[in-house]
Amino acid sequence: MKILITGTAGFIGMHLAQRLLERGDEVVGLDSINDYYDVNLKLDRLRKTGINPENIAYGQTLRSDLYPKYHFVKLKLEDKEGLLKLFEEEKFDKVVNLAAQAGVRYSLTNPDAYIEANIVGFLNILEACRHHQIKHLAYASSSSVYGSNTEMPFSTSHNVDHPVSLYAASKKSNELMAHTYSHLFGIPTTGLRFFTVYGPWGRPDMALFLFTKAMIENKPIQVFNYGEMMRDFTYVDDIVEGVIRVIDHPPVPNPGLSSEITDPSISKAPYKVYNIGNSSPVKLMDFIVAIEKALGIEAKKDMLPIQPGDVPATYADTTPLEKELGYKPDTSVEHGIQQFVDWYRHYYNK
């Protein structure tokens, strides 16, 4: 297959591109390489896939030095003309949209970025898929769409109409927009609600990265909600395996479904939503203990109240993923954290 992956200078995008290339797919990676966090880390991820940052020019595809079937293009999703031109030239079979403005807390102070990248940018992806007969669009949603839901575990059959951050609202909007295009134009779309992804090459704004950095530098870590947070931490390799299973199984129309559909994750249209999580919530304090063991350092802790936009707990029900695609993430937090710590010490020479 020829697959477009948006966000390949990003954490999940880099890992997914490598996996698809290793199995023989042809991949075009796209990223705007914005400065939401350290651009050097993004450029090093590109180097990991054989892309020389010195040769990058906006809108121009660049061949990988490591993977003969990999090209990269620097492009913004908001650039509709550039995106449509890329689709016209490359003739993709499938698209995986991972590019987005990420982060719950950042959305409190920079709301415009979420509308531009996550709403306008996603609309441009949908329009490009519509006009170029894309066989399947898989896209990143988020566990944050569950918002103020308290029923555990979070199920894709639950109502998610009460987001508590603009980031979450933008991801819920993506699911609604995708359904509309599946219904009107028959485009198979699958939304992927990721649960707290971590691992080597992870984002510097995520807890594991922040905690590891602070502990090595002998600085205190900020422990929100006084350590009472519960998170369904999911290792990046498990996320990638789930995404690949989804890519290979596009949803099909369900014309026989009742007119009174009560499950928002299914439709008469070729539309689907899955949770991809470890289904094993971990208390934040236990997560910190695992980092302490991996580093051999005891953390200094600043205990703080919960921040606006955060939710106390996440817990994925992955039953549909297991039943329909035969997959259940299962990497332990202890193993995943050790893999991250080993990468961090090597990458930063700590």
Rank of each mutant, 00 (worst) to 15 (best):
Y327H: 00
I216R: 05
S258D: 05
A290C: 06
N34Y: 00
N124M: 00
L325H: 11
L30W: 10
A207D: 09
I5H: 12
P53I: 12
E334H: 00
Y235T: 10
Y67T: 14
L21H: 04
T150I: 14
Y181R: 08
M230F: 12
N278V: 01
V28C: 04
L108C: 04
L284P: 04
V289M: 11
V197F: 01
L4P: 02
T6M: 09
V27K: 03
L257N: 06
M1A: 15
S32T: 10
I5G: 13
G147C: 05
E26G: 08
Y167E: 00
N225M: 12
D205V: 13
S170R: 05
V341H: 07
P270Y: 08
I266Q: 01
T331P: 06
I337C: 07
K300G: 08
M14H: 12
N275H: 13
G50Q: 06
C129I: 05
I5T: 11
L166K: 03
G59P: 07
R63W: 03
E175T: 02
S173M: 03
E334L: 04
D317K: 09
P188F: 01
A138V: 15
F154T: 12
Y114V: 05
T196Q: 02
E175A: 07
E81N: 12
K172E: 07
A207F: 10
N349S: 07
F211N: 12
P270K: 13
G29N: 09
L295G: 04
K323P: 02
K283A: 15
Y226S: 02
Q338M: 07
Y271G: 02
A294C: 13
P320S: 10
K293W: 09
L123V: 14
K172C: 00
T331H: 01
A9M: 13
K42E: 12
E26N: 10
D161E: 15
F194T: 01
K213I: 04
K76W: 05
D286R: 10
A207Y: 04
K135W: 00
P204V: 06
V95W: 06
P250K: 02
F233A: 14
A17Q: 11
R345V: 09
K293F: 13
K48F: 12
E260V: 04
N118M: 13
K213A: 06
Y139N: 12
P220S: 10
R345A: 08
K80E: 15
Y344W: 10
S107T: 08
K91W: 06
T318V: 15
L184A: 11
Q307A: 11
N97T: 05
N218P: 02
H131C: 02
L176A: 14
L126R: 15
E334M: 05
S280W: 02
L84N: 11
E298S: 12
Y167Q: 03
I337D: 07
M177G: 05
A269W: 00
D232C: 08
N275Y: 07
Y37K: 00
V96K: 13
G326C: 11
N40L: 09
I115Y: 08
I239W: 00
D286C: 09
A113W: 04
H179I: 05
Y36C: 04
R130S: 03
P312H: 07
T180K: 03
